[in-house]
Amino acid sequence: MIELPRKAKGERPSYFEDGTLDSMLSMLLALAGEVVVLRERLDSAERIIDGSGLLTDRIDAYRPSPEVAAKREALRAQFIDLVMRPVQQEYENLQEKAARQESYHKAIDLCISG
């Protein structure tokens, strides 16, 4: 397996005026790359395990039990939280900034009126 450097040399390319959009694009492309790798690995596993196609048919027909479905839902929610973490952090930062500005404006209004 080829080892790639953890960080690219040079500046990250910018495609949009808003750096947040560039970050979102990077996240989306990284996620898409992971999906492609997972699909290839799953395809390889299915071909190795069952060349006849019976396993694939069984996988397609499989219906998880309520317990398995609940576990998968928890894993899905965890994954979405992980992927969306940068967006959530930015949203929280904006809320904190708005709260500080509101507090500042209230203090100014009190000074002016009081």
Score class of each variant (00 low, 15 high):
Phe79Pro: 03
Arg100Met: 02
Ser23Glu: 15
Ser65Val: 00
Gly114Lys: 03
Ala8Lys: 15
Gln78Asp: 12
Leu21Thr: 02
Glu17Ala: 13
Gln95Leu: 08
Ser14Met: 06
Gly19Cys: 05
Val68Cys: 07
Leu42Lys: 07
Arg76Thr: 09
Leu29Asn: 08
Met1Glu: 08
Ala32Glu: 08
Arg76Gln: 12
Ala107Pro: 02
Glu67Leu: 05
Ile80Pro: 03
Phe79Ser: 07
Gln88Gly: 04
Ser26Pro: 07
Ile2Ala: 10
Val87Leu: 11
Glu17Gly: 13
Val36Ser: 11
Glu92Gly: 00
Arg100Gly: 00
Asp50Gln: 00
Arg100Tyr: 02
Leu29Cys: 05
Val68Leu: 12
Ala61Pro: 05
Leu54Cys: 09
Glu102Trp: 05
Arg6Val: 03
Gly51Lys: 05
Gly19Asp: 13
Arg47Trp: 03
Gly10Pro: 04
Pro66Met: 00
Arg41Thr: 11
Arg39Glu: 13
Arg39Met: 13
Ala32Phe: 09
Leu25Ser: 12
Arg100Val: 00
Gln101Pro: 04
Ile108Tyr: 02
His105Asp: 15
Phe16Val: 02
Ser103Asn: 13
Asp81Gly: 01
Leu42Thr: 08
Arg47Val: 00
Arg85Asp: 05
Leu28Arg: 11
Glu46Leu: 09
Val37Ser: 14
Phe16Arg: 03
Ile108Asn: 04
Ser44Gln: 15
Glu46Gln: 09
Val87Met: 10
Asp109Asn: 09
Lys106Arg: 09
Leu31Phe: 06
Glu90Met: 13
Ser23Lys: 14
Arg12Cys: 05
Ser103Glu: 11
Gln89Ile: 01
Val87Trp: 07
Glu102Asn: 09
Ala45Cys: 05
Leu25Asn: 14
Ile48Trp: 11
Leu28His: 14
Val87Ile: 11
Leu110Ser: 10
Leu94Lys: 15
Ala61Asp: 08
Leu4Asp: 10
Gly19Pro: 14
Ala70Asp: 14
Leu94Gln: 15
Leu29Ile: 09
Phe79Cys: 05
Tyr15Cys: 01
Asn93Cys: 06
Asp50Ser: 00
Val68Trp: 08
Asp57Val: 01
Glu46Arg: 14
Ser52Asn: 03
Gln78Tyr: 04
Ala32Gly: 05
His105Pro: 06
Thr20Gln: 14
Ile49Lys: 13
Tyr91Gly: 02
Tyr62Arg: 01
Gly51Glu: 08
Leu28Met: 13
Arg12His: 09
Thr20Glu: 15
Met27Asn: 06
Arg100Lys: 03
Ala69Thr: 03
Leu54Val: 13
